[in-house]
């Protein structure tokens, strides 16, 4: 059974029979993606976990109240995105970039392990640079880049999440990519 058909069937069971087990199956499918999406936007793991739990709880209540759910994944990402916005409105969380960049290399490790550690350090530094640059982008650009390249959603699904047309999303994607590239080049200097 294709994933979309399976999701529709589970949604049907949830909306007609209030089947909690069916909702558990949907949770298993989408929880990792939602957690990753939220963790990219918040500073701590605990906040990401709390917001992820809240996302699924709110999605459950939405399913019971509404009949028209075209895409459950789009619904989840939409709720997660709104929760993060509300989270930053209620609290003023700050991100310590210096903490993220602190990497210790153990002097007692073997040369091969040290090579691996340096390689990982390289990757982490590069990732940190990209992450830093993405956090400097405006919220809309950041969300679209995250949903497209990290969550690997289609432009149609992203359009449903951000409430825009597919054409508009493609244009925003192009602009966001260019903006990130410009920032990365600027930061390199």
């Amino acid at each position: 059974m294709s994933s979309k058909l399976r999701d529709k069937y589970l949604l049907y069971r949830i909306q007609t029979k209030r089947d909690a087990q069916a909702y558990g199956e949907l949770y298993d499918t989408y929880v990792a993606g939602i957690y990753r999406f939220i963790s990219f936007k918040v500073s701590s793991k605990e906040e990401a976990q709390d917001l992820t739990s809240e996302t699924f709880l709110r999605a459950w209540h939405y399913l019971l109240e509404s009949r028209d759910v075209a895409s459950f994944s789009a619904l989840l990402y939409r709720i997660a995105r709104n929760l993060v916005i509300d989270h930053y409105r209620s609290r003023r969380a700050t991100v310590s970039l210096d903490e993220q960049l602190e990497i210790d290399i153990d002097e007692n490790t073997s040369p091969t392990d040290k090579g691996e550690q340096i390689k990982m350090l390289d990757i982490n530094l590069e990732a940190s640079a990209v992450a830093t640059a993405m956090k400097q982008l405006k919220e809309e650009y950041r969300d679209i880049l995250t949903l497209r390249y990290i969550e690997e959603l289609s432009t149609a699904e992203i359009a449903e999440i951000v409430d825009k047309t597919s054409v508009h999303v493609r244009v925003l994607l192009h602009r966001a990519t260019n903006a990130l590239k410009a920032l990365l080049e600027k930061n390199e200097i």
Binding site: Y35, Q49, L125, A127
Partner: peptide, 29 residues
């Protein structure tokens, strides 16, 4: 950090973004 940033290639920005997956910035639960 400056040394490795200079080494970094920016030809494929999208590849750089994908690289974030699995790191602490976009961690798995």
């Amino acid at each position: 950090s400056k040394h490795y940033l200079k080494k970094m290639k920016f030809n494929d920005v999208t590849q750089s973004i994908r690289m974030l997956k699995g790191t602490e910035h976009a961690a798995t639960p």
